[in-house]
C-alpha cells in the first residue's frame, strides 16, 4: 500500500538559513500524527512546504503524496488533490462573504479534478448541515471571510472548510493557539468527526493539551529541523512532564 504522505530526507532553506536538515516521516491513511516541538524547531515550516507556500527553497529530499511528487505541483493543485492546511492565523478578506468564498473554493477544486460544479441549492444544503454541526450560525457566513471573527470563530471556520472540502490530508497548524477550553472542544469535536480510514491528520502543537481532545496515533518530537524522537500518544504526556530541553541537546 502506498503511504498517503512520505517525507524523505527533506532539506529546506529560507533565504540563507537552513530550517529543515533532513526530515523524514511517513503518514498512512486513517492515522493521526502529532508533531510537537519548541518554537523554531521547524514545525510550521514543514506544514508550509507541504502546502506549497512561496518563500521556501527545497534543497534536498522529496515529498510524495499518494505516491506523486508533491513539490512539482502548484499549491492550488495540491489543494484540489486533497491537501488541506488549517492556518494558525487565518487571514481576513474584507468584502468577500464567507459563503461566496466557500463556494468559489469548492468549485475551483471540483473543476480542477474534472468534476461538475456544485449547484447553489445543493451547496447551501451541504453548508447548512456542516455549519450546524460546528455551531456556526448562518449569519456568520454572510460576513466577510474572518472579518471581525473571534479566535474561536476563525478556527471553526477552518474546520468548516475542512469538512466541506473533504481533503485526504489535513494539517492543523497550532489549532489551539488563542482558543479557550470551550472553543477548543468545539473545534476538536469537528476535527474528530472527520477522522476516517482514508483520511490522515497531522496535528502541529506546542502543548499536550490539544492532544487530550484529538488523540494521536503517533507523536513526533521535532528539534532544530529534525525529528528527534517518535512514539505513541504517551510520548506527549512524557514531554509535558520533562519539557523539550533534553531533545535540544540530542539534535545538536
Amino acid at each position: 500500500m502506498t503511504a498517503l504522505l512520505e517525507v524523505k530526507d527533506l532539506q529546506v532553506r529560507v533565504e540563507d538559513r537552513e530550517i529543515l536538515h533532513g526530515l523524514t516521516m511517513t503518514v498512512n491513511g486513517g492515522e493521526v500524527h502529532a508533531i510537537m516541538g519548541p518554537n523554531g524547531s521547524g514545525k510550521s515550516t514543514l506544514s508550509h512546504v507541504i502546502a506549497g507556500k512561496p518563500g521556501y527553497e527545497v534543497t534536498g529530499g522529496e515529498i510524495l503524496f499518494k505516491g506523486e511528487d508533491l513539490l512539482e505541483m502548484e499549491p492550488d493543485e495540491r489543494a484540489a488533490k486533497g491537501v488541506f492546511l488549517a492556518f494558525q492565523y487565518p487571514v481576513e478578506i474584507p468584502g468577500v462573504t464567507t459563503m461566496n468564498f466557500l463556494r468559489t473554493a469548492v468549485n475551483a477544486q471540483r473543476k480542477a479534478r474534472g468534476e461538475s460544479e456544485y449547484l447553489v441549492p445543493d451547496f447551501l444544503r451541504k453548508v447548512r448541515e456542516v455549519a450546524a454541526s460546528l455551531n456556526i450560525p448562518m449569519d456568520m457566513l454572510k460576513r466577510g471571510v474572518n472579518v471581525g471573527f473571534s479566535g474561536g470563530e476563525k478556527k471553526r471556520n477552518e474546520v468548516l472548510q475542512m469538512a466541506l472540502f473533504q481533503p485526504s490530508l489535513c494539517i492543523l497548524d497550532e489549532m489551539d493557539s488563542g482558543l479557550d477550553i470551550d472553543a477548543l472542544r468545539v473545534a476538536a469535536d469537528g476535527v474528530n468527526a472527520l477522522r476516517s480510514p482514508d483520511r490522515a491528520m497531522v496535528v502541529i502543537t506546542h502543548y499536550q493539551r490539544l492532544l487530550n481532545y484529538i488523540v494521536p496515533d503517533h507523536v513526533h518530537v521535532m528539534s532544530k529541523g529534525r525529528v528527534v524522537k517518535s512514539g505513541g500518544k504517551e510520548l506527549a504526556l512524557e514531554l509535558e512532564e520533562s519539557g523539550y530541553a533534553q531533545y535540544e541537546d540530542a539534535a545538536a
Binding site: 502548484e74 492550488d76 489543494a79 487571514v91 468564498f101 473554493a105 477544486q109
Partner: peptide
C-alpha cells in the same frame, strides 16, 4: 498580502482567481 493570496490558493483558487 502574500498571506491572503496563499490562503486563497491553499483553498484551491489559482493566483489569478
Amino acid at each position: 498580502s502574500e498571506d491572503v493570496l496563499f490562503y486563497c490558493v491553499q483553498r484551491g483558487l489559482s493566483q489569478e482567481e
